[in-house]
Design a protein around this nucleic acid. Structure first.
Length: 799
DNA sequence: AGCACGCCGACT
DNA sequence: GTCGGCGTGCTC
């Protein structure tokens, strides 16, 4: 028997199957989806078995070296999915497979050297290194002086030293010491009368038939490890190692909740989902529900039905929305049937959660992007909450979108997918309009709570009235008012975007490209404004093109500056600041939020991360300091992102008894992405934005591919970029547009110059073939490490 | 990705 | 003549 193996060597030349002979002792044990160690050339590496066969077309096959799993870590479905994913994203198969297993199971190859002769037969200079035939790590050896290294290399040639490859797993299963009682009740008499604690402990163990961890037993009886040790010595108690799961949620009690009664709207949207579940068919639903309309309850109840059918469910949430509040709702409803996967867990904790899924100890997974690969085998439901979120797109290879993977998996399992959002992505909503997805709508908040009222403040007007601070009068007064009433406020400042945009403070005019209708980016080095899409360039103006004012400014002030300002103008307010800087430490996020929940602060000031999932009853005011900050980054999705973010932030206010109010400060209050937040009119926003996309030929009207090339020599990268562009223009069909080459928005990273070109197409059968050819053509330069080339199909980032 | 093999200049 | 630099190609 032979095994087809994908080896752990990420390169284009090894991105195919290699045949290995299965030794007789493992004949029936080797199954597709298992990890193995194989000899590969002179070394040993890890690989995934993707198939077995009776024959091999190879004359000389080496045998498998080691079997790393007893049970496959990848199901047949996940192997297929991996192949599909690598085709879709033009990445290596091995990278796709590695994505699907927890980091703890990824192996590292260690190289070490040990002596195979007696010490005194080794050359004198290196004898002290290899005492007692102890192996020396290759990396340590390389730290030695040059003559020593050379002496070692010679010894290896002379068969005095041997090189050995070790394949090691990164993570370990956690085990704890457990005890069980061996003694029957009679032998209690063997314990001396004064050994009171020993007696108590044995009695306790006899009552509790099951084995118990030492630490737990000691705690329950109220004694110390010494007692346990004495009993082990007497032979009354036995100690053994037991594998345990790390529990990231230890000590937290989740209050069980029952399904809530549904509103008639919720009932209406849930019916077709139930039908699809009952028919065991595949269908994609787009659940468009305003903030606070009870989408989560719909998720919970549909998952519940899937579980009742004996199936499993995956629920994806954006990383920053994976708050304790969200986890609590799922644990509350499904208890121990839930595993949680997010980046806050340690490698070991993630491994444990993954194994719970693999062993079918849980039926529901709540997690961020990569949880879409949860090793379930009987999926009945996949939900993607906040489906418009860009964090579902992975920005490194394999550059996949969790939404696409979800739909592919759901097809494999013939089960429904729910994409949920208050502000769906244009792509998804357009698909719903074309009936590719089935649209479900929740227009009302639960219990007839009103949507928060939104005030848009024109900051140009504020300036004219002499208010130069970052808070408008309206926002300042409302903040004071909440402070007085003891209600809480949330202040939102978006610092995203790397490049400064240029704006006139008098009229709000923003310098934008005359060909692309996208804001220009300021380049300090040349004191020029550039368009990152078409390459257009103009001098940095000194006066406003529109009103001749000299108040032309670069924009961008961070949360720290706002915090400073806040303590100056409202010294009595207690402020919690939440951004990357204050939440980097593990658990800091939860700590700050729960402090705010206990009303230990009046104002929560933060970036993106406070826009989602936040649900506190006492929040009655939401302020957005600079609504335009996102609008002018050079990205065709900037208006969409602005609207989505403003809607999300607005949704944080007035979710319970108290009414909510929102203040949005803007220099361009008439822009539709800001203006339409006032009426919470998604449909109108969709219509307007679609017209823009149509005009500029952007998604969803076309598909986009971004090719980024980087090289340390500017002339070199320009040359490559030009070759790539002209090749694409020659090979691809007439209807396809190839733009560029232009310098990337981030024109130089780590001393490499970056250029990019963009493909816009509607239907391009030769696309993948052509892109693969390009990569093949520059393969040598890429392999030599001079040239970097990334190909992003359906990119979300254009840096 | 590693690693061996092999071809060319520098030097004992 | 030999050592070691890097370019080329292979790994079941």
């Amino acid at each position: 028997m032979f095994a087809q193996v994908i080896v752990d060597v990420p390169s284009s030349q090894t991105d195919r199957q290699f045949d290995y002979f299965i030794p007789e002792k493992w004949e029936r044990l080797v199954l597709p989806g298992m990890r193995v160690v194989v000899p590969f050339g002179p070394r040993k590496i890890q690989g995934f078995v993707v198939g077995t066969s009776v024959e091999s077309s190879f004359k000389k096959t080496k045998p498998l070296e080691e079997l790393l799993d007893i049970v496959p870590v990848l199901s047949e479905e996940l192997i297929d999915l991996g192949n599909w994913l690598s085709e879709q994203t033009l990445s290596y198969k091995i990278s796709a497979f590695q994505l699907m297993i927890p980091a703890a199971l990824r192996t590292k190859v260690k190289k070490q050297v040990h002596s195979i002769v007696e010490g005194n037969q080794l050359p004198e200079g290196i004898r002290s290194l290899f005492i007692e035939k102890q192996p020396v790590l290759w990396t340590d050896l390389l730290q030695q002086s040059k003559p020593i290294i050379e002496e070692c290399l010679r010894a290896i040639k002379n068969n005095q030293l041997e090189v050995e490859y070790l394949v090691e797993e990164k993570g370990k299963k956690k085990s704890e010491k457990y005890i069980r009682v061996l003694a029957s009740a009679e032998r209690l008499n063997d314990i001396p009368a004064r050994a009171q604690k020993q007696k108590e402990l044995v009695e306790f163990l006899l009552q509790n038939k099951a084995a118990i961890s030492v630490s737990e037993a000691v705690k329950q009886v109220g004694t110390t490890r010494q007692t346990v040790k004495a009993l082990i010595d007497k032979g009354l108690v036995e100690e053994f190692e037991q594998e345990v799961y790390r529990n990231p949620l230890a000590g937290i009690d989740f209050q069980r909740t029952e399904p809530l009664p549904l509103t008639s709207e919720q009932q209406k949207v849930i019916t077709p989902i139930y039908d699809t579940l009952n028919n065991q068919s595949h269908r994609v639903f787009l659940l468009h529900g305003v903030t606070g309309s009870g989408k989560t309850e719909v998720y919970l109840q549909t998952i519940n039905l899937a579980l009742e059918q004996g199936k499993e469910a995956i629920m994806l949430v954006p990383e920053i929305a994976l708050t304790p509040q969200m986890v609590e709702r799922f644990k509350g409803r499904f208890g121990s049937k839930v595993a949680v996967l997010h980046s806050g867990l340690s490698m070991g904790e993630k491994y444990d959660e993954w194994r719970k899924i693999q062993r079918k100890e849980v039926q529901v997974v709540v997690g961020a992007r990569s949880a879409i690969f949860a090793p379930f085998t009987n999926l009945g439901m996949i939900i993607i909450d906040e489906e418009h979120e860009s964090s579902y797109k992975q920005e490194e290879n394999p550059r996949y979108h969790a939404r696409d993977v979800a739909i592919e998996r759901a097809k494999n399992h013939e089960c429904p997918v729910i994409l949920g959002s208050a502000t769906p992505s244009l792509e998804s909503f357009a698909r719903a309009q074309k009936n590719v997805y089935h649209l479900l709508t929740l227009k009302e908040r639960v219990q007839n709570r009103p949507m928060p009222s939104v005030h848009i403040v024109d900051m140009r007007e504020e300036l004219r009235l002499g208010n130069r601070s970052m808070f408008s009068n309206a926002l300042f007064e409302k903040l004071q008012d909440r402070l007085q009433k003891g209600e809480q406020s949330v202040l939102f400042l978006n610092r995203r975007g790397y490049s400064t945009f240029v704006m006139c403070r008098d009229c709000g005019y923003v310098a934008s490209c005359e060909f692309c209708d996208i804001s220009l980016t300021y380049h300090r080095a040349q004191n020029a404004l550039k368009c990152h899409y078409c390459g257009h360039e103009e001098r940095m103006p000194t006066t406003c093109e529109s009103c001749d004012s000299e108040h032309i400014r670069f924009f961008g002030s961070g949360t720290q500056k706002v915090e400073e300002e806040l303590t100056r103008v409202l010294p009595e307010a207690r402020v919690i600041r939440m951004d990357i800087d204050t939440t980097r430490r593990k658990g800091a996020h939860e700590k700050l939020l729960s402090a705010f929940g206990r009303q230990e602060a009046d104002i929560l000031l933060g970036t993106q991360m406070i826009a989602k999932g936040l649900d506190f009853p006492n929040i009655t005011l939401v302020g957005v300091i600079a609504a335009d900050s996102m609008l002018h980054i050079p990205d065709f999705r900037s208006a969409e992102r602005t609207f989505q973010l403003l809607e999300q932030v607005s949704g944080r206010a007035g979710r319970h008894q108290l009414l909510g109010e929102v203040v949005i400060q803007s220099y361009t209050p008439d822009h539709y992405s800001i203006d339409l937040v006032q009426s919470h009119d998604y449909d109108q926003f969709f219509q307007t934005e679609m017209a823009q996309r149509r005009f500029g030929q952007y998604p969803p009207y076309v598909y986009v591919v971004l090719i980024t090339m980087a090289h340390s020599e500017l002339m070199n990268v320009i040359h490559v970029a030009e070759k790539v562009t002209s090749f694409l223009k020659r090979e691809l069909s007439e209807e396809t547009t190839v733009l560029g080459p232009v310098a990337s928005p981030l024109a130089r990273i780590k001393d490499r110059y970056r250029y990019q070109c963009m493909i816009k197409y509607k239907n391009e059968p030769k696309l993948r073939k052509t892109l693969t050819e390009i990569r093949q053509h520059f393969n040598r330069e890429i392999n030599q490490g001079h040239l970097q080339m990334t190909i992003d199909l359906q990119p979300y980032l254009f840096t």
